[in-house]
Every structure is written in structure tokens, then in C-alpha cells.
Write a protein that binds this DNA or RNA. Sequence first.
DNA 1: GAACACAATGTTGTATACAATACAATGAAT
DNA 2: ATTCATTGTATTGTATACAACATTGTGTTC
Lengths: 235, 235
Amino acid sequence: MNQNLLNLSKAESQAKPDETVASSISLAIHEHRLAPGTKLGEDELGEIYGVSRTVIRAALQSLSHLELVEIRRNRGAYVAKPSIRMAREVFEARELLEPRTARSAAERATPEDIDLLKRHIVEEHEAMEAGDQGRALYLSGQFHIEIARIADQATIAGFIEGLIARSSLVIALYWHRESALCESFAHHSLIDAIADHDGKRAEELMRSHLVDLHSALDLRDKSGVPRSLKEALKP
Amino acid sequence: MNQNLLNLSKAESQAKPDETVASSISLAIHEHRLAPGTKLGEDELGEIYGVSRTVIRAALQSLSHLELVEIRRNRGAYVAKPSIRMAREVFEARELLEPRTARSAAERATPEDIDLLKRHIVEEHEAMEAGDQGRALYLSGQFHIEIARIADQATIAGFIEGLIARSSLVIALYWHRESALCESFAHHSLIDAIADHDGKRAEELMRSHLVDLHSALDLRDKSGVPRSLKEALKP
DNA sequence: GAACACAATGTTGTATACAATACAATGAAT
DNA sequence: ATTCATTGTATTGTATACAACATTGTGTTC
């Protein structure tokens, strides 16, 4: 009777409200519709999604484990606001993990994987041309996650996924408007290297792509321009 | 209904009950008092800790994000049982991250840091001599975490912390009894290298230490000896 | 008028009640 | 006897009620 090969029971394959809420909020953060520091009140979210606070709390807890949301005890949840220091760490970690992952991906990629990556880029282009920068940014992150998935190292892929989520926040906070970025160009050449199964080149391209991203951020120490009122108005 | 059934101090049980429960369970897993696959029923845990299922659920969710616990929808939470594949990935990731971290730690360690590490080793020895292997294993993990903390890269340290947690499960499942391991010896020479601020040596020692650990596991593919009855009796 | 205490309000933390689901046992039909 | 359906029980999923806490506003005292 249960001819489901994966042995997924009804409940396992059906909707999980808390995960749905979590990914909806997560997507909003990725697309920069929710700014860092925004308060995420439980009642308010409950009304929006039509579920109880129980579900909302589970979702927020989930997001806080990914460090997309900061929960302060008895004070509520806020979209996280990574410090400059954390921003640096995130990109340093990406520069450590992703080049190697790109190499593995290049070595293992199947034709289907490459098709998928290409379709990703097409979507990215479409979003760009439609002026939807938020979605373009999201898709650009998904591109990196897809490469990690192809590399077939679930553990490291999980780390990268978290890092890319945090990157969205970092970009929202520290992006240097002046520096125009041509994401899709870098992604194009990466796909070429992967399609050629040229691990060495893919690794090097990923490394320079990340360095480009990193240096397009304004992570100068702004001790004189503190973000909080407390620091700003104390003396 | 706050009847402190366990040895939870008042401050601990007042502060953050869900975190207290989570670390208590986490410690039990680290010390191999909870075996992989053990069912973690919500009511049962609630009675043990004297809190409601709400708190237990938060704790279990936390642990599931660390992949110490697997939550199956409508079926409950179980101590995770990493596959051989996952076990390999965990150690591969450690071999990627920790040597570099050890190098940074060696370069940055202060005299206080080194004292702390030495005290760690002493505790480890004491646990060993007291025959408390579980605690020795836990402390040995904490030693690695301490090194990551010294390296002062919170993001990567967080990854390592998760990897070491999973390592406990891997060791519980795949440890090769025959291979006697002399953890504290490796840890001693690591401390020496760190105390000398010899980054290169620390990196190399950490790498070989992890390779030793990895090879003391029995991760041979046991396709013919499947873990589940379903797989075993299908054809 | 300034400092403090204290009540008012709103939000989060926890417990509990109820609904939904899975698993096991029982019994009927073939 | 085996298969299938059905019911019963236990456990998880969700909503809600209430308690605890933080914050804000008001009033009292000096």
C-alpha cells in the first residue's frame, strides 16, 4: 500500500508550517526586503502567516541557529546585524571553503549539474533585467550553494549555505554602492571551468570571485561612526 | 511544577531552561551515556527535567540543528546515527579546518591561553585515571574547541564545535576497539608547539592527530551488513 | 524641577489542553 | 493462515491561557 520508495509517510511529505515560515522570512532577508535590525514580533508574524506564536517561535529559533536572526531573551527577535568583524570572518571562511569546493564540483559535475547551473544563471539574468536586484542577489547565492551541492560534501555544503545566508546580511550592511559588480560574468566563467572539469581553474576562479566580492564591501573600521545611539551619544 | 529533579542549580534553571536541557543532553551524548538511535520522548524528558514539553521541544530543536539529534515529523526525536558517509565527511571537514586553526592559535596564543590548555589536559588525565572514559572523551573534544577559540575566528570555531559534537557520535558508532589511542600524547605535543608559537608545527601536528583519529575508526563500507532490517530482508 | 519608585502596557516565556498523526493490536474476510 | 481494515493507544503538532519580564509613563518626594 505504501509504494513510496523513500518511505515518506503522509506527514513527512506534507507541509511543515514552521519551516515554511522560516524559509519565507529567510527569503525576505536574502532579498533585502527585511533590513538588519528589524524587529520580528511574534504576534505580528503570527497574524501575517495565520499561525500561532508556537509555530513562529520555532521558525525564529531555526533562523537564529543560522545566525540570520538574533534572539534576545525577553526582548524578542531581530534580523541579525553582523559586525564588521563578523563580516570579515564570514568572507574569510568562504574564501577558505568555497575554492576547494568549486574544485571538487568541477571534478564531479555531471551534464545535468551543468544544465542546472546554466539555468540558474539565466534566471539570475532575468531577475537583473527585470530590475529585481533582491531576487538577483538571492539567486546568485543559490548558485554558490548549488556548486557546493554538486561537490557532494553535505557537511561542508551546509556550512557554505549558512555563510551565504550571512553574506546577504553583510552585503545589506556593508555594500559599497560605487563598486559595480558583474556577478554573472564571474559565474559564467566558473561554469565554463566546471563544464570543462578543470578543477584547478574553477578553484582559482572561485577564489578571485570571492576576493572581488570581499573587496567590494566597505569593511573599514568605523569606530567614529557607531551604529548604536548608546555609543554615539555617550561622552 | 518546578521541582528540581536533577542537579540543576537554581541559577541554571532560572536563566535559560531550554539551553540547560540542551547542554545536559548534549553532554550525555558526548560522554556516550546516550547511544545513537535512542528515542528522546518529549514527555519523558519533561518529567526528568521538571519542565514542560515546550522547553524540551526547544532544546531538541536546538540539538537537531547541531545534527546531534534527528527529528522525524510526528515520530519524535532520536539521538542521531551518522552514516559511514557522514562520518567520513565529518573527519574530512575537520582535517580541512582544524590544522589551519591550530596554526592561527599557535600564532595568537597568550600565556593565559596556554595555561588553560594545560589545565584541560590535566583534567583529561584525571578523568582517564578515574576510569571515566566518557568524560575523558568529552574533555578531549573541549580541548579542540579551546584551540579554535584561541584562534579567534568565531565563525570557524562554531563549525568546529559542531564537527566535534558529531565526532562523538561517530566515535560511538565506529570506534575500532583494538586500536588503542593515546590522545593526551598528541595533545601534549600540540600544546608544546602552541606554547612555542610554532604555527607550522602546530598545523602539522594537528593534521596528523586527526589522521590518526580518522584511521582509528572502522569506516569500511558494510553494504552487506545493513543497519536496518528493511534493507537486510528486502530481496 | 530632578530623581526615584511604582504602576501600566505590551511582549516574551512557559504550561497545558486539544487536535492530528503514527503505530500496534484486534478482528473480519478470503 | 494471511491479508486487510478498523479501532485503540501513545506521541507529537498546534493553539491558547497565563505568568514573568522589560519598557514606558506617571506620580510622589525631596
